[in-house]
Amino acid sequence: MSKNGWPLYEVFIRTKSGLSHRHAGSVHAADDQMALDAARDTYTRRMEGVSLWVVRSDRIVASDPAENSAFFEPAEDKIYRHPTFYEIPDGVENL
């Protein structure tokens, strides 16, 4: 077994042109190229992708789920950002 364990990489797949990359899982690899090869062999054995991203997990900056309510609070009370906030009288069309 490796002494320190190989770094973990998160794998993102674009399933076809026009769609965004989507998280698929993770792989361990000694370096970036190996991570890409391992991700291909692990997650795209059936043509699941046209593009792959791998990124070291420790480079991802993530929000803390425990802080969700405070973190996302600024968006919570701004219902006027949604079209349904506005009342349009019957008879007005194409709005």
């Binding site: 490796s2 973990l8 792989v27 692990t42 997650y43």
Partner: peptide, 19 residues
Amino acid sequence: AGHGLYLYSAAETLGVSRD
């Protein structure tokens, strides 16, 4: 082998290491 790897990857999200 792939299934094993998907699953190890899922288990690792719980804080246990592959090694």
